[in-house]
């Protein structure tokens, strides 16, 4: 029998808030990539304006976390739930920013992107989106193993990033007129690579939440 039923309810709500924000960020990343691949400026714009909601949610939920610390004086697992909650919020908010960055790049290349230059970017994006999804699943279920497997995927993303980076440079060397456009694709690969890093941060937070141990997996 718990003497802290209200607190338990608030902790459960915190998790729901984080997941609500996470699903908005997942959508933003998906839409930003669609905007790029389908050359859809309206969709890109949608991502950019939608980020305000994510930013607002972050501050709302973070304020709530601070209130819980001040009023409930959490310790042990309760404290880990709130501290990792704040860290995940910050990571999600930054991921939302990266989605906006990708959407901006998509707007800059709209109508003039050489499809051939895309290289492995769609595949890289799929892997990054999978990492984000797996990271959030790991958070939902407190699944340390899933978090570890997800973090390991970061190496593959880094590998694709390096390869793509090189081939985009070659492409620009061979097609100098494309540089003003392809340079944005270079940025997109960088944003995707950063998104994968943010996902591994979430994986590390999940492991800390469950075990109380910090593990550097990135």
């Amino acid at each position: 029998m718990s003497y802290r039923r209200n607190f338990d309810v608030e902790l459960a709500e915190l998790k729901q808030d984080i997941l609500r924000m996470a699903s908005l960020v997942e959508q933003s990343i998906y839409k930003a990539m669609e905007a790029l691949l389908k050359q859809d400026p309206l969709m890109a714009k949608d991502v950019i304006t939608g980020d305000d909601v994510v930013d607002r949610l972050r501050y709302e939920v973070e304020s709530n976390c601070i209130r819980l610390i001040a009023t409930q004086q959490p310790i042990a697992r309760d404290l880990r739930v709130i501290v990792t909650g704040i860290k995940i919020l910050i990571n999600l908010e930054r991921m939302g920013d990266h989605a906006v960055d990708i959407a901006r790049a998509a707007m800059c290349v709209c109508g003039r992107m050489p499809a051939k230059a895309l290289e492995k970017i769609p595949e890289m994006a799929r892997r990054v989106q999978l990492m984000v999804k797996e990271g959030l699943d790991a958070y939902v279920h407190g699944d340390v193993e899933k978090a570890r497997v997800m973090c390991a995927m970061d190496d593959e993303v880094d590998e694709i990033y390096n390869l793509t980076f090189q081939s985009l440079i070659s492409y620009m060397e061979q097609n100098p007129h494309s540089i003003p456009c392809v340079v944005y694709l270079l940025l997109v690969t960088r944003y995707l690579e950063r998104l994968a890093d943010r996902a591994t941060n979430i994986g590390e937070d999940v492991i800390y939440l469950v075990t109380g141990e910090w593990q550097e997996l990135n």
Partner: peptide, 19 residues
């Protein structure tokens, strides 16, 4: 003990889940 108690009963007590 206050960040990572080993025993579930300790955790329950210090976090106010029983007592």
């Amino acid at each position: 003990l206050f960040t990572k108690p080993r025993d579930k009963r300790t955790e329950d007590y210090i976090t106010g889940r029983f007592g």
